[in-house]
Simulated assay, not measured.
Amino acid sequence: MEILLQELYKTDIYVDKFHFRKVYLEDTSYQINGISQSGKSKLVKNYLLSLKKNSYLYIDCSDIRIDIEKLNLTLAKFCNLNKIDTLVLDNYIEDIKIVNVPQLIICCETHLKIDYLKSIRLYPLDYEEFLAYEHKYDSTALNHFFQLGGFPSMHKVPSDERNIYIQKTLKYTLETMEFDILIFCAKMMAQKLSPYSIYERLKQTKKVSKDKLYKSYESLCAKNYIHLLEKNNHPKATKKIYLCDISLKSALSLDKHFGRLFENMVFLELLKSGIECFYDDGIDFYIPSRDEIILCKPFADERTLFKKMEAIEAFIFSYSIKKITAITMNREGSVSHPFSRVEMLPFDIWAIGD
Score class of each variant (00 low, 15 high):
Met1Gly: 09
Glu2Phe: 00
Ile3Ala: 08
Leu8His: 04
Tyr14Pro: 11
Asp16Ser: 15
His19Glu: 12
Leu25Gln: 01
Thr28Gly: 01
Ser29Lys: 01
Gly34Pro: 05
Gln37Met: 00
Lys40Ser: 04
Lys42Trp: 13
Ile59Phe: 02
Asp63Ala: 05
Ile66Glu: 05
Phe78Pro: 10
Leu87Val: 07
Val88Ile: 11
Ile93Phe: 00
Ile96Tyr: 03
Gln103Arg: 15
Ile105Arg: 11
Ile106Thr: 01
Cys107Thr: 03
Ile114Asp: 07
Leu125Met: 12
Tyr127Arg: 03
Leu131Gln: 02
Gly149Thr: 04
Met154Ser: 14
Tyr165His: 15
Leu170Ala: 08
Leu174Ala: 05
Asp180Thr: 13
Asp180Gly: 02
Ile181Thr: 09
Met188Thr: 14
Glu200Ile: 08
Lys203Gln: 08
Lys203Tyr: 11
Gln204Cys: 10
Thr205Ala: 13
Lys206Cys: 13
Lys206Asn: 15
Ser209Arg: 08
Ser209Val: 08
Lys210Pro: 04
Tyr214Arg: 02
Cys221Asn: 12
Leu229Met: 08
Ile241Gln: 11
Cys244Glu: 10
Asp245Thr: 03
Ser247Asn: 04
Leu252Val: 06
Leu261Ala: 14
Glu263Gly: 02
Asn264Thr: 05
Met265Gly: 04
Phe267Thr: 02
Leu270Phe: 03
Leu271Val: 00
Ser273Gly: 13
Glu292Phe: 07
Ile294Gly: 11
Leu295Lys: 14
Pro298Ala: 00
Arg303Val: 15
Thr304Glu: 10
Thr304Leu: 11
Phe306Leu: 08
Met309Gly: 06
Ser318Asp: 14
Ser320Trp: 11
Lys323Ile: 01
Thr325Pro: 00
Met329Pro: 02
Gly333Leu: 09
His337Gln: 10
Pro338Gly: 13
Pro338Trp: 04
Leu345Ala: 12
